[in-house]
């Protein structure tokens, strides 16, 4: 470690590990974990998100969960929240759909309208 650039490199890597505590987050994924959501495979959905994001090294994407969800007929439900854009809610999710959302929406910035069940607040 000899220069400020070296330090910066260490810092950037370390900041990834601190991401959950409020780092630079571009997109927040909120997986609905209501009882019916879990029954319909919400944990699998969340795990797939985590795996896909880790595999692609998307350090500015945060996956979190919530216990309160109202759309029980379309569980598992997932919200994608992006700074300055309306919230997008996907319904009836499964691992395959998750992979598509990651590639299309998160990486390429194109909403996968087929799965969308609501937008905005």
């Amino acid at each position: 470690m000899k220069t400020l650039a070296d330090l910066k490199k260490i810092r950037e890597k370390a900041q990834e590990d601190l991401k959950l505590r409020g780092g630079n987050v571009r997109i927040k994924i909120v997986v609905g974990m209501g009882t019916s959501g879990i029954a319909m495979g919400a944990r699998e959905v969340m795990k797939t998100f985590l795996e896909e994001i880790a595999a692609r090294n998307l350090s500015d994407v945060l996956v979190t969960q919530t216990g309160e969800k109202g759309l029980s007929s379309m569980e598992p439900v997932v919200d994608l929240i992006e700074e300055g854009k309306p919230k997008v809610t996907y319904g009836n999710m499964n691992p395959d759909k998750v992979k598509k959302v990651v590639v299309e929406h998160i990486v390429n910035g194109r909403v996968v309208s087929d799965y969308v069940v609501a937008t905005g607040d």
């Binding site: 220069t3 400020l4 330090l7 260490i10 810092r11 890597k13 370390a14 590990d17 601190l18």
Partner: peptide, 25 residues
């Protein structure tokens, strides 16, 4: 109460040792 005090990396993540570098250089 925010970082792990035994991790130098976590301190650096919060901007640690940047002041020292700036001052020295």
């Amino acid at each position: 109460g925010y970082i792990n005090p035994e991790s130098l990396e976590e301190y650096i993540a919060t901007g640690g040792y940047e002041a020292l570098g700036k001052v020295l250089i």
